[in-house]
C-alpha cells in the first residue's frame, strides 16, 4: 500500500464525499425544485405586490417609495369601502347558502338513489363549465330585454315589466350572489359527499338501535364526523369566493356605478386598466388580512378536535 492510500484511509473520505452521501444534503436537493417553484411563483409575486403597494408605480414607470400614502388615500375612498362591503356581503351570503345547499345535496346523493352515478355527475356540471361561459349564460338570463326569468314571470302574469336585473345596484348584487352559488355548490356538495362516504354505515345502525331518530342521527353522528371536512371545504369555499374575479368581470365589470366591485375587480381596474399599479397593489394587499382571518378560523377549528388525533395511549 502506498503512503497516499494509507493517508486517505486514515482521514476517511474527503469532506465532499461525506457531504455527498449525507441524507440532509440529499434532502436539500430533492426539496430545491419545489422551493424554487414556490419562491418564483408565489413568494416573489406576493412580495412584489406588497412592495408595489408602498410605491407610486404606474404602468411604464417604476415608482418610488411613498410609504402608506396609497393606504391613506384608500381610507378616504368610498368606492374602495364599497368594494370591501360588497366583497364581504358576497362572500358571507354565497358561502352560507353554498354550505347549506351543498350539505343538503350531499346527504341526498349519499342515499341509494336510482342512477346514483349519473346524478352525481350532473351535480358536477356547473363546476366543470368554464366560469366565463357560465357567466355569459347568466348574463343572458339576467338580460334586461331578453331575460328568460322576466319572460316567464310575465307569461305567468306575475309581473308587468321586464326586471332590470343587472342595472339596479341591489338587483345586481343579488344576481351575482346567485350565480356564484350556482357555480360553487358542486364543489361543496361533492367534497362533503366524499366525507359522508367515509362514515361507516354501522355507526348509523348503532345509533338507530340506540334510539336515534333521523335528525338525531344527523345531529350526533353525521355532523360531528363531518366537521373536519366541513372546515376544510368551507375554508376553500370562502377563499375562492373572496378572491372571485371572473364571474363579476364577465357579468357586470363592477357596475352599475361600482356597486358590484369586489376588491379583486377594483384592484384590477385601478392597476391594469387605470395604470395605477401602486394603488391597485394596495387594494390587493388589503385582502390579505381578511384571507388570513378565514384561514386562522378554520385552523383553530381543526385544532380543537382531539378525537381525530388519538394514536397515543396516554
Amino acid at each position: 500500500m502506498t503512503d497516499a492510500a494509507i493517508a486517505t484511509t486514515a482521514t476517511g473520505r474527503s469532506t465532499w464525499e461525506r457531504l455527498r452521501s449525507h441524507r440532509d444534503w440529499m434532502g436539500f436537493w430533492f426539496m430545491l425544485p419545489a422551493a424554487g417553484i414556490l419562491i418564483l411563483f408565489l413568494a416573489y409575486p406576493l412580495g412584489l405586490g406588497v412592495w408595489l403597494s408602498f410605491t407610486d408605480a404606474k404602468i411604464g414607470r417604476s415608482g418610488s417609495f411613498i410609504g402608506l400614502e396609497n393606504y391613506d388615500w384608500l381610507s378616504d375612498d368610498k368606492i374602495f369601502w364599497g368594494s370591501v362591503f360588497f366583497t364581504l356581503f358576497y362572500t358571507i351570503f354565497a358561502s352560507i347558502v353554498k354550505f347549506a345547499l351543498g350539505l343538503y345535496l350531499a346527504l341526498l346523493l349519499n342515499k341509494n338513489l336510482p342512477m346514483k352515478a349519473l346524478l352525481r355527475s350532473i351535480v358536477l356540471i356547473p363546476y366543470i363549465v368554464p366560469t366565463v361561459l357560465s357567466a355569459i349564460a347568466f348574463w343572458w338570463i339576467y338580460d334586461s330585454s331578453f331575460s328568460i326569468i322576466s319572460w316567464s314571470l310575465i307569461k305567468l302574469g306575475l309581473i308587468d315589466n321586464y326586471i332590470n336585473f343587472l342595472g339596479d345596484p341591489w338587483n345586481a348584487r343579488w344576481c351575482l350572489v346567485v350565480a356564484n352559488i350556482w357555480r360553487g355548490v358542486p364543489f361543496v356538495a361533492i367534497t362533503l359527499l366524499a366525507g359522508l362516504q367515509t362514515v361507516s354505515p354501522s355507526l348509523y345502525e348503532a345509533a338507530t338501535i340506540d334510539g336515534a331518530s333521523r335528525w338525531q342521527n344527523f345531529r350526533f353522528v353525521t355532523y360531528p364526523l363531518l366537521t373536519p371536512i366541513i372546515a376544510v371545504v368551507m375554508t376553500f369555499s370562502v377563499l375562492f369566493t373572496f378572491t372571485d374575479f371572473q364571474l363579476i368581470w364577465a357579468m357586470t365589470r363592477g357596475g352599475p356605478v361600482n356597486a358590484t366591485h369586489l376588491m379583486a375587480t377594483l384592484s384590477y381596474q385601478r392597476a391594469i386598466l387605470g395604470g395605477n399599479l401602486g394603488e391597485g397593489a394596495a387594494i390587493a394587499t388589503a385582502m390579505i388580512p381578511f384571507l388570513l382571518a378565514a384561514i386562522m378560523f378554520s385552523w383553530f377549528g381543526l385544532q380543537k378536535r382531539k378525537w381525530q388525533q388519538g394514536g397515543d395511549n396516554d
Partner: peptide, 30 residues
C-alpha cells in the same frame, strides 16, 4: 329503537368523536 334490544357489531361501531363515557351513555342521553 322500540324493540328494546342492544347490539354489538363486528367492527364495534363506536362513535369516534365521543369519549368512552359518552359512547356508553349515548342511548340514555337520547
Amino acid at each position: 329503537k322500540e324493540r328494546d334490544i342492544a347490539m354489538v357489531f363486528q367492527n364495534y361501531a363506536l362513535y369516534p368523536h365521543m369519549t368512552v363515557y359518552d359512547n356508553m351513555g349515548f342511548s340514555l342521553k337520547l
